[in-house]
Design a protein around this nucleic acid. Sequence first.
DNA 1: ATGAAAGCGCTAACAT
DNA 2: ATGTTAGCGCTTTCAT
Lengths: 355, 355
Amino acid sequence: MITSETFRETFLKPMATTLKDIARKLNISVSTVSYALNGGSRSVPEKVRLAVIEVAREMNYRPNRIARSMITGRNHVIGVVPPEMYDNLFLSPYLQLALNGITNEAGHLHQDLLIYTRYSETDGHAIADTILDGRVDGVIFISPHVGQTAVRRISDFGLPCVTVGGVDQEGIPSFRVDNSGGISMLVRHLLDLGHRRIAHIAGLLNMDDAIVRLQAYQNAMLQAGLPAPDEYVVKGRFDIAGGFRAMNELLDLPTPPTAVCCANDEMAIGAIQAVLARGLKVPDDMSVTGFDMTPNSEVVPPGITTVRQPITELAGEAMQAVFQMIEGKECPPSKVLPTELIVRGSTSRPKEDLS
Amino acid sequence: MITSETFRETFLKPMATTLKDIARKLNISVSTVSYALNGGSRSVPEKVRLAVIEVAREMNYRPNRIARSMITGRNHVIGVVPPEMYDNLFLSPYLQLALNGITNEAGHLHQDLLIYTRYSETDGHAIADTILDGRVDGVIFISPHVGQTAVRRISDFGLPCVTVGGVDQEGIPSFRVDNSGGISMLVRHLLDLGHRRIAHIAGLLNMDDAIVRLQAYQNAMLQAGLPAPDEYVVKGRFDIAGGFRAMNELLDLPTPPTAVCCANDEMAIGAIQAVLARGLKVPDDMSVTGFDMTPNSEVVPPGITTVRQPITELAGEAMQAVFQMIEGKECPPSKVLPTELIVRGSTSRPKEDLS
DNA sequence: ATGAAAGCGCTAACAT
DNA sequence: ATGTTAGCGCTTTCAT
């Protein structure tokens, strides 16, 4: 007869030592073994305790966290939902920095990370179901989509939930930078240099950060009394290839801009490549700015003028926040950190004086 | 009286709908509900099935995967162990590429990833215990240390286990490139250009890949009848800063090399920075080679001559391999993929003819 | 001081 | 066709 146990034993996983095994060997009860090993509310005589520990070692006992989770309701695992559902996720510097912050902090807090990478299901319903299946104690969304309904669903369900980037939502703390302030600084920097025809390469407009940055660009231009015509706003998808294409579009315009403000560093890198590919020079023929201050923004010549976004710190704080919520403490407030202007080689006065 | 249930309900997680709740509501048994929802070995009349599904939706039922795991013994989660225990893990391009491969494939196979980032415990014993606590169905080690005893422990226990990089071990399939072949190609390339004084910046020598590459360098020099003196071998820790320091050491030698072969691209980037910082030029004053063909190796001027290592593909195959083992299929064979030489701007003939 | 037993939510064998 | 029940390995209450 093939019982369930026999089946598992034979074909799936090897049988591990359980508390019961130890108890049987020592002729004591499981509860005593449990208390001896984990020191709960009951005290166990030193002699017994040592014997149990000895046998546990001998038999190579390892507590089964799944079983423990069922009772305690705690997994000590935090779910992490990356921004988008495309292949080669980890090539995004933004995600890298965010994961570093989360990872470092998770280590300190003794939590493991379950990274959700299965995005066959695009709809928030399915994603939420996966997240709410009991394996994680809380969730961190990294730059969720606009209308990522999963965030709301999860929060409504009562599972602790925070976002890195994104916008504020009732009861869901978000940790982000002052996008508007950052873009304003960059545009002002370009204005101060004497630029008047300034274009914007926008990110994925289904992400809040991209939307806010676009609006900030438009506002900054408006305030300066300068036009921000539609053809000066090109979508760049937040990646190098997108920045490359977008810059080409701008260069093909009858009156190209003299400066381009990109919604992130990667698009700035692509944009610079496009300029160079035409035999033009950065910053002489075209000033370019980025956003994020990723490691590459420094390495890529001539060094990209950008805005420092403390993503790693922010992500770390997000991690602390979910943890607090999990621990039953009060829902911590959202946090908006200021950005810092980093001027490097990719911006200079325009060739022709346009003032 | 505060029962365990009340406690959890009140302070920790919200109570979710269970099969029992649905059964009670419909006045049928849990097993019927289970079969109606998951369609196991028992058939359920269409009418009942629909009613169950309806109520499940109404009550917002979500299966508890923890409970399911306890019985089936399957989590549909694969553990991933990153190479080292330092902060800012995700800045390593090697890890990024590996994770991409694993992630993409995990998506196809419908497996989630649990990334182990808690390395307060350096010793293999503790790491193995964490991994063997029942939450994952298999493990992928990325470039494990030499003497990473956890790998052996886990494999001995019977949990499916593979490595990306590293060396072959009995019963543990590894997926890696031909390190020796790659380094040989690079050294030969430098020799062909006319270099004779060739140094090596080695990686972390507690990693197999670093050791093998160092040996390959020494062999290649030996074969060419050229010296590879101790002062021409400097440790660079596999990162940019390490490459920078190492190159400075080499430049301070009474007779500096004319070319440096680095064990990875990042150290090559650091090395180039060090050369430039002294007002020297790459490749005119110093040829530099990398390893891995990371995205940056192309972007950093003058473009780094390197060796393409199909890390992403390799990692994907590793993922497929653990999955097969989990499914009870035979342990797949290890795989060694060839590398490909990528010649770019960072190498040229030495200034002085040394032949 | 410690054994027995009740579950956690689910699956699957066993009955009916 | 479907209800009852025995666990999975553990924690924790209850009883002794």
